[in-house]
């Protein structure tokens, strides 16, 4: 990476900015969603501590579904970095 012409530099710049934006913006949705899930699970656990096991399992399942959009943007970021 010692010397490159302008076209190569712009290409690399676009790749880096694109991957960063894809991952950064894509992580907002799952973050908010998983926060909501966690908050409501905490509420439910505080109300009914004897249901803790069942609630934790379902919370993890809901987390896995909620984070799928974040995973898609992670995939896109990897595609931009490694396959473009």
């Amino acid at each position: 990476m010692d010397k490159m012409d302008l076209a190569q530099a712009i290409y690399l710049l676009g790749k880096a900015i694109g991957a960063g934006l894809a991952m950064g913006i894509g992580a907002i949705g799952p973050g908010v969603g998983e926060g909501n899930i966690g908050a409501h699970a905490m509420d439910a656990m505080a109300r009914q501590p004897e249901m803790m096991g069942a609630i934790t399992t379902r919370m993890l399942l809901a987390d896995a579904v909620a984070e799928s959009t974040g995973i898609y943007s992670l995939l896109i970021a990897f595609l931009i970095i490694f396959a473009l």
């Binding site: 896995a64 995973i71 898609y72 992670l74």
Partner: peptide, 16 residues
């Protein structure tokens, strides 16, 4: 599509 991409993204992304 979403069914397969969810698993693929988690496992492949986790490996990387």
């Amino acid at each position: 599509i979403s069914h397969s991409l969810r698993l693929f993204g988690n496992i492949a992304g986790g490996a990387i």
